[in-house]
Each structure stands twice: as structure tokens, then as C-alpha cells.
Design a protein around this nucleic acid. Structure first.
Lengths: 305, 305
DNA sequence: GAACATCCATAGCCCGAGGCTATGACAGAA
DNA sequence: TTCTGTCATAGCCTCGGGCTATGGATGTTC
């Protein structure tokens, strides 16, 4: 009878890719699952939506009729989510800040102080988001503003200001052959097994695998959703992982050592918000982040939260 | 993340009724189930949608923000279903006819003959629909046209032509005290246990319980989704059931007897379609049904399919 | 032409979501 | 007080939506 919006999203993905396999990997589900769901949608509508003749997948007339409605419904649902989140944030005067690693860098005390002066009725709420979401929770409306590492999806939907630029370091298990060195050229690390962000992280995953600095893709042995998971895997000797310099300093563990990596472009921490979100609080927050970094010299800013 | 359209429908129902209990009974689900689903929707949106303070239920601002989107999404999904069904029917040249009882009355041969002349490329498909759907499958787009007993929901969404007017009879188990009579005044039946349509049938259920001819509501001992279920229950002595005169004639069973009932308004069989559906095939079909009855005298029309 | 790769479908398994009944807590009416 | 009506909670069961493994059909390559 009624449909799950997820299934409409599946349908649109297949209609766009005209391939079950590609659509499935874009949606981060298995191909049989996608086939099953589309079949189920077809049987609930009592008609075929795609013509599959072994080598090609094309929309039927019925599929074409559904496509515009499906996209509209998905879009309307996303509008609904954001409207609801906005109403809540506005009346509660709460700005939800998404972050992936710890934030640190002296941002929090500085920004809260400034927000307290400019918008005394507003409060900040912090929510840790998974590495798997490249928009750090902005796309789904779970957060109003995010402090995250670039790149974020460059679709015009998001706007950002760089807050900090830091060299990339590496986390190694204590017993590792290179753990004794004071700094390590990336060329010596390239063939090591790596811990990666989930595939859904997209360009951000590639950045922390330093794919731009390789000839052949990195050897990924495990995936982690957050820093603690990845440190645990490093300590267990499963693989190694790159991380920003500041995080190396604040995340000290007895079983993991951090070393600078030579020859990599630096990483950039940014404050990000939805381009369409014109609320004053968002801009005050972003401005505060940017300003805070002007006042403090690089060395003095490493205050873990 | 994504939502099921069903849950939006639940939400709209509660928003309209401002009561979980009433909304649940309107939706034909239990109240705890409805409460659970609304709570889940609230938690996925991370905000309350209703303010429940023991005696009253009111929308929160977030709930108000969601309501318009939710209605739009539900409406759009229903449009999608109908558009898809239309595309399929148009290109397949198939008109799907919904029916609840057997149709009979000589309609089928007469109408197929006429359709064959006027629209030779079209074919008819018949689908039995549950008594639980007062629109006989028209609302959900499962059928294009329905042959069903009045009343149908009178919202302007549907248009109909009466095809046959028949007295109401009663089905009794062979051993019943009144089975020996040739005709039975309704007053003698009123206090008997009745088999009813499902509650979702609404006004149609009331009609076949003859609620208009009673002082106190009928004593309902069981519910049935179709004629066979109800005859089975009658034969088992569970209760009795009213039915149209023609059906009494064509549904002969050794363990059930049919008798005319005196003092009830007659029942009316109609051909029904969606008011907005302007397809020629629909009108040819409806016209054929109406005409067929003009040619045949009442007695001669009882040809079971 | 044979071997291989690619793509969609099927089968079988597992877990969680969504349904139910039974029951509890609380407010207003009798 | 007691009864009634309303929403919440708990416990249970079924089915839907996810996965892996595998099969069959069709191009592609050597």
C-alpha cells in the first residue's frame, strides 16, 4: 500500500545509473538487496518499472511516470526534515555543532565566550557524527553547523571557512619498524596496510588515504567510524592511519605512537554550514571560529576539550 | 533517516483527531502501536511532535511544520500510484474491474460484447476486492472501475450509476428456527447475531447490518471479508447475514437457506469510477452497464458468471 | 572457440521493525 | 471513592529488509 521513502530513493538511484550493480554500490547496499527491493516496489505497483534484458536496464513508461513523483517526494521529505530541525533550533535557541574528531584547538572556549556576548540566549549542543557522512550531519539536518576536515561535497549546498591548516601525521603501533624515527617520508608508508574511513565518506576517505600522493590505490585492511575505533585497530597492529598534527598531540596512548609524515599536502579544518541557512546564529558561530584562530598563535592553540 | 509514508499517514491522523485512541481506530491499528510509531517518528526527527498532558493532545511548533509537508507527501504518493496505474492501463489497454460479491446479473456477457464493438483493442480484467475497502479498490488505484453496492464514500471523489435495485434477503443455517418461513419481517431478525463487513467498510457495513432500521446497534458476532467467508460462518451457526436477492439465488448451498426479508429498503448495485478519470474506456464501460439493465427484464437477468 | 568477466536473479539466513494483547498510571466524572 | 477514558509500557510474534553464496546468461578477450 504505502511506500518507504528509502525504496523511492533506491528506485531513483537505479533510474539514474541504469544499472543495479552501480546503484547498489552508490547506495552502500548489496546488489541482491537492491534487486529485491525494486522487485517488491514493482509488485506493489503491479507493473514493471525497468526492462532488464540481460545487458541493459531501461525505464518502462510506468517507471518514467513514477520517476518525477519519486524525486519530488524525496525532496519534499528532506525539506520537511530541515524545516522541523529549523523550527526546533529557532525556538530552543540551540545551535547543534557536528564534529568528527575531537575539536580542540582552543575553539570551544573562545567560541562559547563570543557567542555568550553576541547571542546570550543561544546555547551550543555538540554531536559527534560518523566519518561515514561526508557532510558531517548537515545534509540530513541533524546538525546546524559542522567543524570538519576538508573536502566536503562540493555541490554548492555547503559553504565553509578554513579554521586551521595542519600537517598530516601517522599513528603507528609501538612495536612498528618505523616507530623509532622522528619523521617519516610518505614513500616509506605507502605500501603499509591502512585503516580507512567508510566508503560513504567519499573524497574525505581518499584524502586520509593520501590517494593523491600514490600511484596505486592504498591497501585498506579495515574501516573505522571514528578516531577511537581507528586507534584501537592501530594498537592491535591491524594497520596504520594518518591524522592531523594537533590530534596526534592530544590523543596520547601508551600503545600508539604518532610521527610527522613528510611530503604530504597539509589537512585543513573548516567550519561548514548549509549555504541556504541564513540564520544569524550560524554566521556568528562561523565568524567566531575564524576569528579565534587569528588571535592565537599556532602553538598556543592546542587546548584539548 | 528516511520515513515510511505509512508513518506520515499515522502522524496526520493523530494531528487531525488530536487523540491517539480515535486516530488508532480510524487507522484500524491498536493504540499502543500508534503511540510507538509516533514516538519513533519523533525520535528520528529528534523532537516532540505532540504535547501530551494526560487529557489533551496538541501539536508542537515542530509538529505544525511537519504537517503540511506530510500531507503533501501522502498526496503526491497517491498521485504517483494513480499515474502509474493509468500509464499501465493505457498502454496495455486493460480496464481493471473491481467487484466484491460475484457480479452476475447478465452484466459480464453483455458488457464484454459491447466493449468488443466500441473498443476492440481493450480487454477487461477482474479483481476481487475485500469488503474492508469502501471504495472497492478505486482509492488505491488497484482498479479502474468497480461494480459494488451503495453506499460508497460520498466525498465527490467517486461518481456512480445505479445498475440494479434489489430487495434484501437473509442467509440462515438450515436448522434455524425461522428457516421454515417463506418470508421474514426484519423485526423478527433484529436481535439475531450478525456477521458484519470489517469496520473499515464504514457506511457499507452499517447498510448490511440494516442499522437504519434498528433502535439499538446490531449484535455483531463475527466479521467476514467476502461472501464465502460469511456463508461459512452462517453454515456453522455463528450468525446470520443479509444479502441481495440475486446473490441469494446464485449462491445455493445445502447447509444455508435464503429467505426474503420484509420491511427493509432495497439495496442498489452501482458501477463506480473516479470522478477525475476521464478516459473513454471508463465511460464506455459504465454506459454499457447501465444500458444492459434497460434491455433485460429483472427476471431474465439472473445469469451467474 | 574456450575461458573469463560482468551483471542480474535466486536461495537461505539473521535481526530488527512493526504489529498485537495485557496491564499500569493518571485525570476527570459520577 | 469509584469508574471510565486515555496514553504509556512490557512482552511476544511475524515478516521485511539486510547480508553472503551461488547460478545463468551475455559480452569480451586471447
Amino acid at each position: 500500500m504505502d511506500v518507504h521513502v528509502r525504496d523511492l530513493r533506491y528506485f531513483v538511484a537505479v533510474a539514474e545509473e541504469l544499472s543495479f550493480t552501480r546503484a547498489a554500490s552508490r547506495l552502500f547496499i548489496s546488489q541482491p538487496t537492491l534487486s529485491k527491493q525494486i522487485r517488491q516496489l514493482e509488485s506493489s505497483l503491479r507493473t514493471a518499472l525497468f526492462e532488464r534484458d540481460r545487458r541493459s536496464v531501461v525505464l518502462t513508461p510506468a517507471g518514467r511516470a513514477l520517476l518525477t513523483h519519486a524525486s519530488a517526494i524525496i525532496g519534499r521529505w528532506e525539506d520537511a526534515r530541515r524545516d522541523v530541525a529549523d523550527v526546533v533550533a529557532r525556538q530552543d535557541m540551540v545551535l547543534t555543532v557536528g564534529f568528527q574528531n575531537r575539536i580542540g584547538r582552543g575553539l570551544i572556549p573562545s567560541v562559547t565566550a563570543r557567542m555568550g556576548v553576541e547571542l546570550p540566549d543561544w546555547r551550543l549542543k555538540f554531536r559527534q557524527v560518523s566519518w561515514g557522512d561526508p557532510s558531517a550531519g548537515l545534509a540530513g539536518g541533524e546538525v546546524d553547523v559542522a567543524v570538519t576536515w576538508l573536502p566536503v561535497p562540493d555541490t554548492g549546498e555547503f559553504t565553509w571557512k578554513v579554521v586551521s591548516t595542519e600537517e598530516r601525521w601517522v599513528a603507528l603501533p609501538v612495536g612498528h619498524a618505523l616507530a623509532g624515527r622522528t619523521a617519516i617520508p610518505f614513500s616509506e608508508l605507502a605500501s603499509e596496510p591502512f585503516i580507512a574511513h567508510p566508503p560513504s565518506a567519499g573524497a574525505l576517505r581518499d584524502f586520509w588515504l593520501a590517494e593523491d600522493h600514490r600511484r596505486t590505490p592504498a591497501r585498506v585492511v579495515a574501516e573505522a567510524e571514528n578516531p577511537d575505533e581507528s586507534f584501537e585497530l592501530v594498537a592491535a597492529g591491524v594497520g596504520i592511519v594518518l591524522l592531523p598534527a594537533e590530534n596526534a598531540e592530544v590523543s596520547q596512548r601508551a600503545d600508539v605512537v604518532h610521527r610527522p609524515v613528510l611530503g604530504l599536502s597539509p589537512s585543513r579544518l573548516a567550519v561548514v554550514w548549509r549555504t541556504k541557512d541564513r540564520r544569524e546564529a550560524v554566521h556568528v558561530f562561523a565568524e567566531s571560529c575564524a576569528r579565534c584562530l587569528c588571535y592565537l598563535p599556532d602553538g598556543a592553540s592546542s587546548v584539548p576539550i
